[in-house]
């Protein structure tokens, strides 16, 4: 069975430089080797250590799970430590990533536009210079999907009592307040039919 496909990491802005070079090498004639820091590792480092976000917040911005972000982050630190200790140069490139930016809409001329440079805040429409702009959220479908995913219902197999499923709590650990039996997920096939 092939492994699950890799989730692409979201990068807000590419780095301003493409690498670092060491200087003052004591080894005479030693050829400098390079460490390839992936763009996703650069982004994780930027979010965690420059923007001072925690791993959970950073993982949402990069559209990956929290454990994945921690893995990327630890790899970034390991590579930078390797470069510092062994005097290697750092080249920032590669990685399975995509770029994304925020979108806005203008109420005056009805156009949509994005902000390619995250450092600068957009205050007016680039087309008609009107300041009546709105932050446009194209991810509405995704949030809808999330809410339906969590709108499952736990049901009691013996008396039929229903309660909304709490995310992170297995239904079998929920106890029915009416008759004290362990509950099951509604609408899913279970060993015990009811």
């Amino acid at each position: 069975m092939s492994p699950r496909p890799f989730r692409l990491r979201k990068i807000s802005n590419p780095p301003v430089i493409s690498g670092f070079k060491p200087y003052g090498n004591k080894k005479i004639g030693g050829k400098t080797e390079s460490v390839f820091l992936h763009l996703e590792e650069y982004e994780a480092l930027r979010l965690c250590d420059y923007e001072m976000l925690n791993h959970h917040q950073a993982s949402i911005l990069m559209a990956v799970s929290r454990p994945t972000l921690t893995r990327i982050y630890s790899k970034a630190r390991q590579k930078i430590a390797e470069a510092l200790v062994q005097g290697k140069q750092i080249i920032i490139e590669g990685g399975k990533i995509y770029f994304d930016s925020e979108w806005y809409s203008c109420k005056n001329c009805g156009c949509f536009f994005n902000n390619p440079d995250k450092q600068e805040e957009i205050k007016e429409c680039p087309l008609c210079r009107n300041s009546n702009i709105l932050n446009y959220e194209p991810d509405n479908e995704e949030t809808e999907e999330n809410t339906t995913r969590y709108s499952d219902i736990c049901i009691c197999p013996s008396c039929g009592y229903e309660t909304p499923h709490r995310c992170g709590c297995p239904c079998k650990d929920e106890i029915c307040p009416e008759c004290g039996t362990n509950m099951v997920r509604k609408g899913r096939p279970h060993k015990r039919n009811f």
């Binding site: 590419p14 995509y98 994304d100 156009c111 949509f112 390619p116 680039p126």
Partner: peptide
């Protein structure tokens, strides 16, 4: 994503 990486602004006018 290509234009995002090149820092070119896209303006969609329907």
């Amino acid at each position: 994503s290509l234009l995002d990486s090149l820092k070119i602004q896209m303006i969609v006018l329907k």
